[in-house]
């Protein structure tokens, strides 16, 4: 394929898959402009992409309280009294219904890791801490991010408290945790 035909092809495909043209050119120029035999692998740009709207269903209040009121909620089973955060509208142990309870937002790190190599959506944010946090008053632990100045100081058992982001999107990442005290 000659250079001009290649560039036109790259531009058309770049628009189709929603990637900058120069990146498509970078990825395909060598293969597409060299003399490959008729049986050489033929690669093309592609993507799989679906836009959606997602209802939180019975879990909606958890996300709405964070989003609108900076309140962290859990649920308590009306039959066996277990407290869940992340919340559940139904108890997985006794199948009882649960009711909403407000949590203080303090808790402890049960375990953590520091991510240094991430997916293409997060690669620019590394390193960051992801931890399971057992909130005071809850029987289960929630996965969240812990932000701290010295990232090497995260420890199992560390006391943390919830922080509500100023700009909230209605997603679980509207909250994160910081060392308490």
């Amino acid at each position: 394929m000659d250079k001009q035909t290649f560039l036109t092809w790259a531009g058309r495909n770049a628009r189709r898959i929603g990637v900058k043209k120069d990146l498509v050119v970078q990825a395909f120029e060598k293969a597409m402009t060299s003399q490959a035999g008729p049986d050489a692998p033929f690669e093309v740009p592609d993507t799989m992409h679906i836009n959606m709207r997602y209802s939180y269903g019975g879990q909606s209040r958890f996300f709405r309280e964070i989003f609108e009121n900076k309140r962290l909620m859990g649920t308590r089973c009306s039959a066996c009294s277990k407290v869940f955060c992340p919340p559940r509208t139904n108890c997985p142990h006794c199948y009882g219904r649960t009711e909403w309870v407000e949590l203080r937002g303090t808790g402890k790190i049960l375990s953590y890791t520091t991510v240094y190599f991430a997916t293409s959506s997060y690669i620019k944010q590394v390193p960051y801490i992801v931890a399971y946090i057992k909130l005071d008053g809850a029987d289960t632990a929630i996965l969240s991010n812990v932000e701290m100045k010295d990232i090497g100081k995260a420890r199992v058992g560390m006391e943390v408290k919830v922080v509500f982001r100023n700009q909230r999107d209605g997603r679980i990442t509207d909250i994160y945790f910081r060392e308490n005290g």
Binding site: Y56, T113, V115, S121, V130, L143, N145, R171, T173
Partner: peptide
């Protein structure tokens, strides 16, 4: 996807936690 994926935990991360 509801509670965990948005935190950016990777596959390695889930086993690192344990």
């Amino acid at each position: 996807m509801t509670y965990e994926q948005p935190t950016g935990r990777t596959a390695a991360g889930s086993f690192a936690l344990t």
